[in-house]
């Protein structure tokens, strides 16, 4: 397995995926370079979440053809934890609850797995406290069971907190804007935009934002927008494409 440092940050090549024998993704191609934010929009049930789970390595989704490359390295056959350690991140649409596991212990374990080369465990506390402040999350949050009884907004704030703590070079956000009220959307989106800003190292990172709405893209401004339908990308354009979709819907995109 070789790594090409001059390769695009993230590539999806002719990706075909089946779920329980049914083909859902039918040849997805996508290239994201360092510093770019791409958005994927599309109707419900077109395979967007299947794409995000597949990219993270969920075993339920079988790659029948194609490749996923991170920094030029083929990660298609790697388990999710290996992908995470290579700094790929998925913000889940529906983060699962794990009763009895505190947010603090979970965050410490994940930071230890992903960032132990650059941070000592003794530094975790200060880093977590700092990021909590940025997201307007009280420290008492840390003693709660992971995602148990969390509101939609709390779950998405925690996903955003994890993104900022784990410092991925490639982040996939699966409908991170769903379940957020206006204020929470602003806080979460501003933190995401801050994460991709050049002064915070965003020039070396990439982001794939899966969303139904333009509202999040008002904050996290995409460089490229894709329309997803029938298990593949149907149309690609600039940021104005999201505005057009918001205005005209998907009917005009053939096959969407």
């Amino acid at each position: 397995m070789t790594t090409k440092t001059d390769a695009p940050l993230f590539q999806i090549q002719d990706l075909h995926v089946s779920v329980e024998g049914k083909q859902v993704l039918k040849g997805v191609n996508l290239t994201i370079n360092k510093g770019e934010v791409h958005a994927i929009m599309g109707r419900n049930g077109t395979g967007k979440t299947t794409l995000s789970y597949t990219l993270m390595g969920h075993p339920k989704y079988e790659v029948t053809a194609g490749k996923i490359l991170l920094d030029g390295e083929d990660i298609t056959s790697l388990p999710p934890e290996e992908r995470a350690r290579k700094r790929l991140f998925l913000a889940f649409q529906y983060p699962v609850a794990i009763p009895g596991v505190s947010v603090a212990s979970f965050l410490r374990a994940s930071m230890k797995s992903v960032r132990s080369a650059e941070l000592q465990p003794s530094q975790f506390r200060a880093v977590i406290k700092e990021e909590l402040k940025k997201l307007n999350v009280p420290e008492a949050f840390m003693t709660r069971s992971l995602n148990e009884g969390f509101s939609g907004g709390e779950k998405k704030r925690l996903e955003t907190l994890q993104l900022r703590l784990l410092q991925p070079k490639m982040a996939i956000l699966d409908e991170t804007d769903s379940g957020l009220d206006i204020d929470a959307l602003r806080v979460v989106s501003e933190n995401l935009e801050n994460y991709r800003s050049p002064e915070n190292g965003g020039g070396e990172r990439g982001m794939l934002v899966i969303t139904h709405y333009q509202r999040m893209l008002n904050y996290v401004k995409p460089d490229v927008v894709h329309v997803f339908g029938s298990g593949k990308i149907l149309l690609t354009g600039g940021a104005d494409l999201a505005l057009k979709l918001e205005d005209k819907g998907y009917d005009w995109v053939e096959g969407a």
Binding site: G57, P80, E81, F92, I98, P99, F106, A109, S113
Partner: peptide, 27 residues
């Protein structure tokens, strides 16, 4: 399995994920 995949996606390996989920149950 959804709990496993969530923990794995945060860099936590299978054995550690099982231990963490079981510990959570006990807690």
């Amino acid at each position: 399995p959804d709990q496993y995949i969530y923990l794995q996606s945060r860099g936590i390996g299978l054995a550690d994920a099982e231990a963490m989920i079981t510990r959570g149950f006990i807690e």
